[in-house]
Simulated assay, not measured.
Amino acid sequence: MSTWSNALNFKKIPLTAQDNLPDLALVNLDDWGLVTLIGDDKKSYLQGQVTCDVVSLPADASTLGAHCDAKGKMRTIFRLFNHNNGYGFLQRKSVMASQLPELKKYAVFSKVDIEASDDVLLGLTGESAQAVVDQLFTGEGDVRVIKAGTAVKIDEDRWLLAVTAEQAETVVNAIVEAYNDVRLSDSTLWDLYDIQYAIPRIDAATELEFIPQAMNLQAVDGISFKKGCYTGQETVARAKYRGINKRAMYIVSGEAAQCPQAGDALERNIGENWRKGGTLIASYQYADNLAVALVVLPNDLDSGTRFRLAAQPEFIWTKQDLPYTLEDE
């Protein structure tokens, strides 16, 4: 059994809302899971299961996507990339037990092996993350084969490293020894980046609650409207072409006594009353008690609408700008 993390202190970095994010941080992504798909039919099988276009995915790129039920409700949101002669399928660990059996349900009819991986998942974040990857790992592109694993570019400030448990200690020590100023963080720092970039996710508390467009998956290139059929495709297509979707995911911020959790209710102000307004998807609380979150809300709210956490009604929250547009092309 690997003991790579025993001697290292991955904990939440105490940041206030005014602080700059660390120039370089190594993040232990122990609440994320990886599924691997290997075999001759891996591409065609997955193409018929998920919202993204697996067939056209380049070897040096990754894509977001969703796996839905027959009604178009999402079991998970994942990041897909080429990994170890197959695919890696990154998702929240909290949905692994329920989602993986559904993904494997029809695999008996295809030449594909689908399993939960025991790879160690690490994040490199900050303005220096790209330079570190370029120095330590050879190759080009946004997905790179590295010793005993894969490096995947997430955005301009982040890389994911998926490596075997046997090699994790070597990789971590190489980074820590080469860069004295690297900060060690638990996965809350990754949460903060996901919120700032408005990257959707599904946890157990929100599984099978939303269609892909309710979490902006079309705005982050996680849905192909040109590929063939897949599970839930009829609902996803109707949401686009008939305008049946009435929700979207937004960034909200406000004070909090403690960090809210996925699935928590956000209320909206209507006149003198408060009503259920949305559902928390991900959140982060700064050291000065300001918190930021991703939340699914009605997509026709007035810009000045006020919000509050149902469990913490003493604090008022407001909606912030998204880093991308929700307008259809």
Results as ranks from 00 to 15, higher is better:
residue 104 K to V: 10
residue 215 M to E: 08
residue 28 N to K: 11
residue 267 E to S: 09
residue 37 L to S: 06
residue 137 F to S: 01
residue 65 G to C: 07
residue 18 Q to Y: 10
residue 247 R to S: 07
residue 90 L to Q: 09
residue 270 I to A: 11
residue 168 A to K: 01
residue 327 E to F: 06
residue 181 D to A: 08
residue 63 T to G: 05
residue 15 L to Y: 04
residue 289 N to L: 10
residue 205 A to V: 00
residue 278 G to L: 01
residue 254 G to V: 03
residue 83 H to A: 04
residue 233 Q to S: 09
residue 215 M to S: 09
residue 105 K to D: 07
residue 93 K to T: 01
residue 280 L to Q: 01
residue 183 R to Q: 11
residue 139 G to N: 08
residue 281 I to P: 00
residue 329 E to G: 13
residue 140 E to S: 15
residue 182 V to Y: 02
residue 276 K to A: 10
residue 208 L to S: 12
residue 235 T to G: 07
residue 254 G to A: 02
residue 299 N to S: 14
residue 229 C to Q: 05
residue 122 L to Y: 04
residue 302 D to H: 11
residue 288 D to I: 09
residue 296 V to G: 00
residue 219 A to P: 08
residue 188 T to R: 13
residue 128 S to C: 05
residue 125 T to I: 07
residue 312 Q to T: 08
residue 38 I to E: 14
residue 97 A to L: 08
residue 169 E to D: 13
residue 294 L to M: 13
residue 226 K to H: 14
residue 133 V to F: 02
residue 113 D to E: 15
residue 212 P to L: 08
residue 258 Q to I: 10
residue 229 C to W: 06
residue 18 Q to C: 06
residue 293 A to L: 02
residue 311 A to M: 09
residue 190 W to Q: 09
residue 279 T to C: 05
residue 78 F to T: 00
residue 307 F to H: 05
residue 134 D to F: 03
residue 305 T to R: 08
residue 53 D to W: 02
residue 280 L to G: 00
residue 23 D to T: 14
residue 200 P to K: 01
residue 33 G to Q: 01
residue 326 L to F: 07
residue 118 D to R: 06
residue 211 I to L: 04
residue 229 C to Y: 04
residue 192 L to M: 07
residue 257 A to N: 13
residue 257 A to D: 15
residue 5 S to Q: 15
residue 173 N to M: 11
residue 258 Q to S: 13
residue 63 T to M: 10
residue 60 D to M: 06
residue 197 Y to W: 11
residue 44 S to A: 11
residue 124 L to H: 01
residue 86 G to W: 11
residue 95 V to A: 00
residue 15 L to W: 01
residue 314 E to C: 06
residue 315 F to V: 09
residue 41 D to H: 10
residue 34 L to C: 12
residue 309 L to K: 04
residue 273 N to R: 13
residue 210 F to A: 02
residue 247 R to K: 14
residue 251 I to K: 15
residue 108 V to H: 11
residue 309 L to C: 05
residue 274 W to L: 03
residue 80 L to I: 12
residue 247 R to W: 02
residue 253 S to H: 10
residue 315 F to G: 03
residue 50 V to K: 05
residue 143 V to Y: 04
residue 33 G to S: 15
residue 122 L to I: 06
residue 143 V to S: 04
residue 327 E to N: 13
residue 22 P to D: 04
residue 319 K to E: 12
residue 136 L to K: 06
residue 113 D to K: 14
residue 120 V to T: 15
residue 67 H to E: 02
residue 255 E to R: 12
residue 199 I to S: 09
residue 219 A to C: 14
residue 326 L to T: 13
residue 41 D to A: 09
residue 139 G to C: 09
residue 323 P to N: 08
residue 50 V to H: 03
residue 109 F to W: 08
residue 210 F to S: 00
residue 301 L to Y: 08
residue 125 T to D: 05
residue 137 F to P: 02
residue 20 N to Q: 13
residue 218 Q to D: 15
residue 212 P to Q: 07
residue 100 L to F: 00
residue 3 T to H: 15
residue 319 K to G: 01
residue 188 T to D: 11
